[in-house]
């Protein structure tokens, strides 16, 4: 280990955990309460392979009491070491996970994630899905948290519609891109956005 601590798993956490996690949680809560709305979050500098936003969410929500699944595209030793050092969250297979992180394709298939039980729908996974950007909205949301309609960029409309059809069961999703987040709870109704003629 050299003096280059910026590359070690000891670095890149919150400098002031209580305050920074309060800010990240407030953004994450507001995002979950208002599906489709994009919120910036900062404070963590995770290793290569994880976005700032995904890193911030993990530091704020995960600890030894929450199990975590890393999809193959983010499952690198540096990422594992960083998450273990900063959160202590145990790594588990997808079907046992409270949280799962990765790109959309790497997280496939989605029917293996926990959707809760009819008596405990909260016992379900929260997915953190890394996207390149949010700049190509292709779907429209309605339902709780949305005044009229909200546009959102989704990687696969049909899979997420199938999840929404399970309500009140289902997984909940945070999409992350660079240092932005956007949430899609299972309660949102999803319609494809009709492309306007150019």
């Amino acid at each position: 280990m050299t003096a280059q601590t910026s590359n070690s798993h000891f670095s890149g956490g919150f400098r002031d955990p209580a305050i920074q996690s309060s800010h990240v949680f407030r953004a994450a809560m507001t995002a979950m309460a208002r599906p489709g709305e994009i919120k910036p979050i900062t404070g963590a500098t995770p290793p290569e392979g994880l976005s700032i936003a995904a890193g911030c969410l993990l530091l704020t929500l995960c600890d030894p009491e929450t199990s975590l699944y890393l999809a193959p595209d983010v499952d690198h030793p540096a990422v594992r070491d960083w998450i273990t050092f900063h959160t202590g969250a145990p790594f588990v297979p997808a079907q046992d996970a409270d949280f799962a992180v990765g790109g959309w394709a790497a997280l496939t298939p989605f029917d293996r994630f926990r959707i809760g039980t009819s008596e405990y729908p909260d016992r379900s996974a929260t997915l953190i899905v890394e996207l390149p950007s949010f700049d190509a909205p292709n779907a429209e949301l309605s339902g709780p948290g949305i005044k009229t309609r909200a546009e959102i960029t989704l990687p696969d409309i049909e899979v997420l519609q199938a999840n929404a059809a399970l309500f009140p069961l289902g997984f909940d999703t945070y999409f992350t891109a660079a240092s932005d987040i956007c949430a899609l709870p299972r309660s949102s109704r999803i319609e494809p956005l009709l492309m306007k003629e150019g």
Binding site: S21, M32, E65, F167, P185, R186, S187
Partner: peptide, 18 residues
């Protein structure tokens, strides 16, 4: 912090299942 995280996770699930 650990207690707040536990409560925060419950709040998020509460919002997802109104």
């Amino acid at each position: 912090e650990q207690t707040k995280r536990m409560i925060r996770r419950a709040i998020l699930k509460g919002l997802a299942v109104p």
